[in-house]
Amino acid sequence: MKKNKVLILRTAGTNCDYETQSAFELCGIAVERVHISVLIENKSKIFEYDILVFPGGFSYGDDVASGKVLSNEIKNKLGSEVRKFALSGKPIIGICNGFQVLVKIGLLPDPELFTQVSTFSHNDYNKFECRWVYLKTGNKINNESNCIWTNKLPTIVSLPIAHGEGKFIPKNKSILNSLNKNNQIVFRYSSKDGNIPRYPLDPNGSVDNIAGICNKKGNVFGLMPHPERYIFHMQHPSRKNFTGKNHGWGKIIFQNAVDFVNR
């Protein structure tokens, strides 16, 4: 049997690749961190892999705007391959800078369309912030969303964020409506009890408190929080165990995708 493999796409300024690799490895899957220049030289190499990861970091320094230079590069050099990968139904995740890239190349919210219809701007509080937040998944999402990454999560989870440009802005009302209608909004910032949060629990002022979205099919997932930073319960600031096991919420997210490709 062919062994499944994860591709972590890295480039100048990628900096969450090691911990993302560890997270997948702890879920029992092989991982390779591959530099974009290698992939551009051999474009079909991407199809050797079963999960594609756009990790966090500051790709090319986030110069001009977050993820801008990298998404420009991917669109021009790897666009059709990445789109084909997404349409094949294989899992793709973009974390933080990776989410910004997925949105700016237009792989989210709709890889069919492959056009940018939403964007990110600076946090409402005008500064980079690293802190933990509550995220509401909502039972409705759990039952009705197709997102393969967020199965088995409870209604409220906590994960850390670390970003300066995390305010998600859809182009217009109809984009937002369709995200809602199709249950594509997987994570929303929330208060501890699931209500509308205020700063700092709403860290960036995202429209509709959006923290993470997926495509309609549910295989492509992007989120600003960092699930790879909450693999062990010890990584939580209050160091309590919320999962009932020795792991954190982030582990469940990665395990979902691994289980999906191992089916």
């Binding site: 969450c16 980079f128 690293c130 802190r131 850390p160 960092h226 693999i231 062990f232 990584q235």
Partner: peptide
């Protein structure tokens, strides 16, 4: 908070 004091995921 302006520093990403949790990148690399190892700040326990």
């Amino acid at each position: 908070r302006q520093y990403d004091h949790e990148v690399q995921g190892q700040t326990i």
